[in-house]
Design a protein around this nucleic acid. Structure first.
Lengths: 409, 409
DNA sequence: CTTGTTTTTTAAAAATATCAAAAAGAAGGG
DNA sequence: CCCTTCTTTTTGATATTTTTAAAAAACAAG
């Protein structure tokens, strides 16, 4: 039954009609994945095929269980068309969102529903083979506990921070121990094809495919955490750059300060407009006598970390709100630069700092008006992530689904 | 004969096979345009068609004069394959590169050769109907003087500065007098389909399709003139953004100065790293007593303009070279930001300032090392435009050709 | 000149589109 | 409430297009 998902080698050995048939079926499924259940007429127009041909393809796909009849659509005057769509339980996709101290793992069905999810599984990310093994075990455990039969899981998507080239399957910042691509290494261990992806890009895709993005085709997604990452959807496609290192917005040199960034350079956006900068500024203010819910004794600043500050802001801590606004204002300068360059329809604020909602969004918005060309920024909406901390793990699942239905070859 | 180039309306009325046949033929021609003369076997693989089908299509295209037999390729051991390619004289494309005080006009054949070109035609760009009429007359004069029959000119590409949406045909900064798109307005006047495009984007496409770009698929093109514009080729496609306003790199807020930019904001890249900034700094230095070939009397600074400074640098004027290096250094900061975001394979330096070659390129390069993540900038090459001041006009021609062969619908 | 290799042509087989007919509702009238 | 008419979708038979597979052709090398 799993005849649709093939390796690149087998494509060359395939006969012309076999290739064509698979290509057409994938295009049908991809159309369903993007547009939901559809009538034969729509499919015909979109794929430039005849009605009988589409009917035949759909019948085969229904035989293969990938497609299901979704009943009648509302009539437009005459006979109502039949709707066909993906059969939710015919294929599943697993996503793993790896953070420094925990992972999220989720399984989605063919209809993009979350079937099973475990969040905040304790895990320590380190660039060691042991850490990689531990990750594979966590994935194995998750699969073992599922109701879903293993062979129905068509792929596993894994998000990692740092430099990842999802086309080749290589991760350079983490787990780069072998000559083989990491995706193959893990894929061999767990026996399911693997796609590795950069975390911010996966989050961007999550919001794009199932989040706050509606019809927009040019979207910037800001992953605001301790650092600042960015995922970009341009002309409806995830953008990678030459070797998957795009989106390092946090290291744009936009300030004239002397703060040394993690990357070793000075003046990076991150040095003044990131979770890291927020924590530093918070500590400095407390040391200088500012009061906050978070700490009573200015000698003991251990309790101050990013999550704590975000929580404090949500409980109306004045200092937290004030400093988050400052961060938003500075971030606005960086985003203004990006808007001038990309002319996007939408900028999505994501990552842990996005949980502060309008506390960060509104100062950012006013900075945008200050720094970006008004004509350009009038084109651009600014929204807060809808998926929140599930953006990554959902993005991983959906990205695997997308890759399996892609006809790029 | 001109059956391949159709309006969008007629596509819907077309029968399925007619559409398919045109689609396939266009794909063949587009393949030739990109890869040059090719053998049937290559075409078969690239288009996923059978050999007899490709043969039949080629025969029709040869009948229609678009394709020509280019003789035998070198044998790989057995029978040598026949090469087919575009017939240079079967279709022509006209490009018009509009500057403030002059225009370049050129005609290219189907093989991307320049058939005829007139450069620096005096013309005054103003946002008035008269100026638009004058432009149309210049185009008409150019066509009248050609040997090429008018009906073989498949399209006219026109580059304008400012905000241009080439998909809809609207230009907003210039000639926006009617509700109709500008491309239709001009097209009706001269009787040939028109494509309007932003100048920097057209230049970027020129370098991409026939200039310094070889196999790179992610390329940033800097148009360094009085202002700083940018055209972007991402994943092998020109990037437009939501409404064709992308690439405003000159207005990224990266400096903390108080110089007010043309756009009304402060701190724009252009305020310190553009031809405009170069002229201002040059004047200031001369007023403060610096010596230069350009002026003897510091009271008379009229002779100082961008072209003069560039020429002075080329004749080894120390002040010019020094200030150009300064501009390059500052521009490096902006480009570093872009490289961090785009992870491109190549950044092309174009526009009039590019004529200074290594005088601007080398300081820029060292600034890049200072400001961008080394891993990212190691991926990126920095080259000077090959087409020089012909990038725009050639880009206009090639972009029209590209649009006419596109199967996007 | 023969043999080996690769490309091109050809004719039979398969796949696909077209067009006409049938089916499935919706709307309106008796 | 049922029947007729209207509209649109779906099906089926036929015509067309496309692929397949086998034969022929073109050239290189021995």
């Amino acid at each position: 039954m799993n005849k649709l998902f093939l390796t690149k080698q087998s494509i060359d050995q395939m006969s012309g009609v076999a290739y064509k048939s698979i290509h057409q079926k994938k295009r049908l499924l991809a159309y369903f994945a993007e547009h939901g259940p559809s009538a034969i007429g729509d499919l015909r127009r979109a794929l430039h095929l005849s009605v009988p041909k589409v009917t035949a393809l759909l019948n085969e796909l229904m035989e293969e269980q990938f497609v299901r009849d979704y009943g009648k659509d509302n009539s437009t005057g005459g006979r109502p068309p039949n709707l066909y769509g993906l059969a939710a339980e015919s294929a599943y996709f697993l996503g793993v969102d790896v953070h420094r101290t925990f992972v999220h793992i989720a399984l989605t069905d063919f209809q993009k529903n979350i079937v099973s999810i475990t969040e905040q599984v304790p895990y320590t990310l380190a660039n060691t083979p042991e850490s990689l093994n531990a990750l594979c075990e966590l994935i194995g455990d998750f699969i073992a506990q599922l109701q879903t039969p293993r062979e129905k899981i068509m792929g596993v998507g894994i998000n990692l921070t740092g430099r990842v080239n999802s086309a080749t399957g290589f991760s350079y910042s983490f787990f780069h121990f072998q000559d083989q691509p990491l995706s193959h290494v893990i894929g061999d261990k767990i026996g399911i094809p693997v796609v590795v992806e950069n975390d911010s890009r996966a989050m961007a895709y999550g919001e794009f495919a199932a989040g706050v993005v509606e019809r927009e085709r040019n979207v910037l997604f800001l992953n605001m955490d301790y650092g600042i990452g960015m995922g970009m959807v341009l002309d409806g496609q995830l953008y990678y750059g030459k070797s998957g290192y795009s989106g390092e917005a946090g290291h744009m040199p936009v300030f004239d300060n002397n703060i040394i960034c993690q990357c070793g350079k000075k003046g990076c956006l991150e040095t003044e407009a990131s979770g890291w900068a927020l924590v530093e500024r918070f500590k400095t203010r407390v040391r200088n006598g500012a009061t906050t819910q978070l700490v009573q004794n200015p000698e003991h600043l251990e309790a101050i970390n990013l999550e704590a500050i975000i929580q404090a802001a949500q409980s109306d801590d004045v200092l937290a709100i004030e400093l988050i606004a400052e961060i938003g204002e500075r971030l606005g300068r960086g985003i203004a630069a990006l808007i001038n360059v990309f002319n996007p329809e939408l900028v999505v604020l994501g990552g842990s700092l996005a949980a502060t909602g309008d506390y960060i969004r509104l100062p950012l918005l006013s900075a945008l008006n200050k720094y970006s060309l008004s004509l350009v920024s009038n084109d651009t909406e600014l929204k807060v992530s809808r998926l929140g901390n599930r953006a990554g793990v959902l993005g991983a699942c959906l990205l695997v689904q997308h890759k399996f239905l892609s006809t790029a070859d």
